[in-house]
Design a protein around this nucleic acid. Structure first.
Length: 646
RNA sequence: GCCAGCGUAGCACAGAGGUAGUGCAAUCGAUUCGUAAUCGAUAGGUCACGGGUUCGAAUCCCGUCGCUGGCUCCA
């Protein structure tokens, strides 16, 4: 535990002490330090609200001022259990009620582990420590919010009240922290998205379904352009698939019923014609089954079928046709099955591999309402998806190429703070959580690890987190307000192609099942753009900026306006997103507005510029950078856009 | 989905039982200006929605929807 964590952990004890002074009946569960502070979970009939904070903080101040020593006491398990039963853990003094959660926690401490208590003043808690020496060491603290949390994080357990707070060595550090939080809030993509008119939500459309305004659509189109160029150069082929598919496909893929809850409920269609067909098929099925029974019992052949397998095949075919009747269509929650179908649409040869099918696919996932979060967690998303079908021999190289593509993108966007999380299988759970292909697991994981090590990327390996069909790499980033998100993913799949019966004809004329790499380096437009808004604080580089150039005149003399219009037309002819501000505001007002709207480049044109055939250049956030000949300025802008520079 | 808080004009906010207010943005007019706000006028609201209490509800109560902070979840 770091020094600051220790301090915050101690503050959690002080919080518990204060709460007990006000509500002696409070029952405490766990109170650890967390990333920017600490919390304590408690059960209390009174619902604590932010209005109570002042009162609680008042009591906490008294504890800090009293400067009690944190005293460490080692006890045996029996002693700890006894104290919990007597209600003396996470408590001020003896009380009738046992310390319920502490009792449970004590009983779950593994044998042989040292059990310690910590005392500050008349408060005693079960705690492994460490703590600061005295409560007075807590220089500054503040309760921040109250939330609820399931005991031990398990949905089946009761919900407790969780009080969050933060603490620092001194007030200066705490003030700096809250200032930083304010700064982060200014970057919040939800706020900037509204202010910059990038996207919006509408109650009639539905929660988690973002609508992209023209300026946001620009970001989407630019990212797609980048992806298409990059993927074209890397040998990908673009495909397009529908947004819906029949239930049968998701049964085959294995996504149903496991993921049905995360999918929008199906659309059910059963038209007259289909009803008739259902009756016909049902009759036929009965007939074939009867014939099969007769065949089994007597060996007599009543139809064209004359082998048991033929009967079974026929029955299976009818059942399948029936299953597709009265069609249930699902909105796709992932693109892979559709792409698998495209792989399967043509006979494939080893000569075609690796086959890389790419699409910005629209997916729909019915995320829990409480999970929705701006653009970062939505219900409709446009995914930078592609599936690479390859042989085992090709896998290492393909996976590495994908990885390099990630790094290329990160470089373009200047993304430095990220973490690659390599999720692997758990040998204990083969055949249950993970497909039972031990050799392939070990082999592909070794290949992935090798790629990661060779590229020198910082990564952590997380066992037991892989997809059921193979190991994966998730790229984690953090939003302005500190939430962690997977921004991109790269997964190996050696199971689903088999379920789809995907095969290619190999050199030796045998049919083989390809490996599949699922990859989405730019994740979804929604999350990626949400992240970029915060990453750039809305100040997009020129090539991405929704409004790249704004031309504004000083005054509205006819010759000036003509000149400005010519510059404007020239830029637009080169597909530069340039706008013209011919309003009657003073130049200061025009600049103010353009700065607030985060227009990347401002071309100020006054009489001096007109006479010199120049334009005065101003860059958002950087101020006036001086005049330049008009041709030079235009050429610079075009070059910067082409090279995707700032 | 669960717990809690919040929904007032496009945006940021005020009003806390007696019939709706400010700033910015918008619209119209005047202003002609060299790098972050020229002046004036006008318009804009079923106070999220539905029900209840009351002589009277934006305000109090209940329900629904949405948002926010957490928890759970995240192929």
């Amino acid at each position: 535990m770091t020094e600051i964590e220790t301090l915050r952990h101690s503050c959690a004890h002080v919080l518990a002490t204060a709460i007990l002074r006000i509500w002696p009946e409070a029952q405490f569960a766990a109170g650890p330090p967390v990333e920017n502070g600490f919390y304590y979970d408690l059960d209390l009939p009174h619902r604590i609200t932010p209005e109570d904070f002042a009162r609680i903080e008042e009591e906490m101040k008294k504890e800090v001022k009293a400067n009690h020593r944190f005293e460490r006491v080692e006890v045996s398990r029996e002693q700890a259990v006894e104290l919990a039963r007597k209600g003396q853990l996470a408590a001020l003094s003896e009380r009738a009620e046992p310390s319920r959660f502490k009792l449970d926690i004590v009983q779950n401490i593994p044998d042989g582990e040292l059990i310690t208590l910590y005392r500050n003043g008349d408060f005693t808690d079960l705690c492994a420590g460490p703590h600061v020496s005295h409560t007075g060491r807590i220089g500054a603290f503040k309760l921040t919010h109250v939330a609820s949390a399931y005991y031990k994080g398990d949905e089946r357990n009761p919900q407790l009240q969780r009080i969050y707070g933060t603490a620092f060595k001194n007030k200066t550090e705490m003030d700096a922290y809250f200032k930083m939080l304010e700064e982060a809030k200014r970057r919040d993509h939800r706020k900037l998205g509204r202010e910059m008119e990038l996207f919006c939500f509408d109650d009639d459309v539905g929660p988690g379904l973002p609508l992209w305004l023209p300026k946001g659509a620009v970001l989407i189109e630019e990212l797609e352009k980048l992806a298409k160029e990059t993927e074209f150069a890397a040998g990908y082929q673009r495909v397009r698939t529908p947004h819906i598919a029949r239930k049968s496909m998701y049964e085959r893929s294995g996504h149903l019923p496991y993921y049905a809850e995360s999918m929008f409920p199906p659309m059910e269609l059963l038209e007259e014609e289909e009803k008739e067909r259902r009756n016909k098929l049902t009759l036929e099925l009965q007939q074939v089954k009867e014939e099969k029974r007769t065949f089994e019992l007597t060996g007599k052949v009543l139809s064209s079928l004359d082998r048991l397998e033929d009967f079974n095949d026929r029955i299976h075919a009818i059942e399948q046709a029936l299953g597709n009747l009265g069609s249930r269509y699902y909105l796709k929650a992932m693109n892979c099955p559709h792409h698998h179908k495209l792989f399967d649409a043509l006979p494939r040869s080893y000569r075609e591999l690796p086959l890389r099918l790419a699409e910005y696919g629209n997916c729909y996932r019915y995320e829990q309402s409480g999970e929705l979060f701006g653009l970062m967690r939505v219900r409709s998303m446009q995914m930078n998806d592609a599936h690479i079908y390859c042989t085992e021999e090709q896998f290492g190289q393909e996976f590495n190429a994908v990885n390099e593509m990630y790094l290329k993108y990160f470089q373009i966007f200047g993304i430095e703070k990220y973490l690659m999380r390599f999720s692997t299988h758990d040998p204990e759970q083969l055949g249950q959580k993970f497909v039972g292909e031990e050799e392939l697991w070990i082999k592909t994981e070794a290949m992935v690890r090798d790629v990661l090590n060779k590229s020198g990327i910082n990564y952590v390996e997380v066992p037991n987190e892989a997809a059921f069909y193979g190991p994966k790499i998730d790229v984690q980033v953090w939003s302005a307000i500190g939430r962690e998100f997977t921004i991109a993913t790269n997964q190996v799949d050696f199971a689903v192609p088999k379920r789809f019966g995907l095969v290619y004809k190999d050199r030796d004329n045998t049919e083989k099942t390809p490996l599949c790499i699922h990859r989405a380096p730019l994740g979804t437009h929604e999350r990626f753009i949400g992240f970029l808004i915060e990453h750039y604080a809305g100040n997009f580089p020129l090539w991405l900026a929704p409004e790249q150039v704004r031309i504004m005149t000083i005054g509205d003399e006819e010759a000036l306006v003509e000149y400005a219009k010519r510059v404007h037309a020239e830029l637009r002819a080169h597909e530069v997103r340039a706008e013209l501000d011919l309003s009657t505001d003073k130049i200061n007002g025009k600049i103010q507005r353009a700065e607030q709207q985060k227009v990347h480049t401002m071309l100020v044109i006054g009489k001096r510029d007109l006479d010199a055939g120049a334009v005065s250049l101003r860059l958002h956030g950087k101020g006036n950078v001086g005049a330049k000949p008009r041709d030079e300025a235009v050429a610079d802008i075009l070059a910067s856009i082409k090279e995707r520079r700032g």
